[in-house]
Design a protein around this nucleic acid. Sequence first.
DNA 1: TTTATATTGTGATTTTTTTCACATTTAAAG
DNA 2: CTTTAAATGTGAAAAAAATCACAATATAAA
Lengths: 213, 213
Amino acid sequence: MPKKNIPKLAIRRLCIYKRMLSRLLEKEQETISSKELGKLTSIPDYQVRKDISFIGEIGVARKGYNIKKLNDHIINSLGLIEVWNTAIVGVGQLGTALLNYPRLKEMGYNILCAFDIDPKKIGKKTGGITIFPSDRITPTVRKNQIKIGIICVPPGAAQTVCDALAKGGIRGILNFAPIALNIPAHIVKREIDFTVELEFISAVLNLMKKKRS
Amino acid sequence: MPKKNIPKLAIRRLCIYKRMLSRLLEKEQETISSKELGKLTSIPDYQVRKDISFIGEIGVARKGYNIKKLNDHIINSLGLIEVWNTAIVGVGQLGTALLNYPRLKEMGYNILCAFDIDPKKIGKKTGGITIFPSDRITPTVRKNQIKIGIICVPPGAAQTVCDALAKGGIRGILNFAPIALNIPAHIVKREIDFTVELEFISAVLNLMKKKRS
DNA sequence: TTTATATTGTGATTTTTTTCACATTTAAAG
DNA sequence: CTTTAAATGTGAAAAAAATCACAATATAAA
């Protein structure tokens, strides 16, 4: 179990180390140093070591970290073995893609149901999952003990479905709608909007240019 | 022009304020306080004010910020009017969706070409854009003065196409491949991997549970 | 067995970011 | 015109995060 409170940013980086480590598992290499792992993840070596130190001593001086052991250790420490009942809200292009993405199940996200507002979609199956009407979100989430909701609806509908998920007792929300969600603090939220990231890139490029000139 | 160096995190939040402001433009409301804007973006009011202060004084005591004026001011200060020649690498499900997403052009991302390794796709058009072979990335990027590259290839190919983009003189990269890219520091990079975000949510939920018990 | 050295783990330091608190401003009311 | 109070903008304080530097350690070579 983790020593003390792990900083949020360290948790996120640990997930990134794990992503690389599971790729390395397929190679013959057995151990990796913080320097190498840092190179592969664009994170400085001391940061890698410090992050890993939050979940305990696992490295070997002069050799580095055993790849399999470190991978397992991150999975265990962060509880990534757990299986989560998951729902997808909004079966448009993105929602459909997610319903057909088999790796989600492999990663422990057990998609139990999907929701959409379009009567033509309701009752149909996508990726083996039945689509329910959006106004049934709260009872369905509660009944099926759904813990994680993935929001793929247009921005105008996002807050409403978010509230419905919250009322049903959801624990975590991954939001793809391009709008910030108002949410009780006990629900863990993550928002992904590639247009914000693109604009961030543009802004940084522009400010770099201005500074030079 | 901005007073001094704007912190990266403030830039990102300014993009998020702008996203909300442009939605508010369609409403009749004329001004907004830092408190209201903070509520809408889940960011504390003092943080909103401090972020805005990096791009100058624009608010009016007792009234707040004029929505249109603040929106324009963020756009100007961060240089978000600029048009960027853009390329999409990897015309799979995601790449295809992006090529058919008209808002990209509206936002100033002028997609000039796409690349794929699959001979069956090369020469075809998707969303009006011709698909070139991946081994032509470097010269095509250079010739067309492409500044931003969006990587949508599988993880095994991502570093190779990233290197090719860098060699062609790319300035910014948005990476959807689930792998960290090694990249010269002068190139602005952003990585989006929803599986990392899902695992982050799981990890935080687990650590919350552990702490309570 | 001893030595040399690569590598970890971590306290201490520095830097960055967030948070606070309040003086200042200004619109609106009286 | 004066008063009131809502809201900004910001310097200062606090908190968090990143960075550094090095003692401790353990492998491999001599």
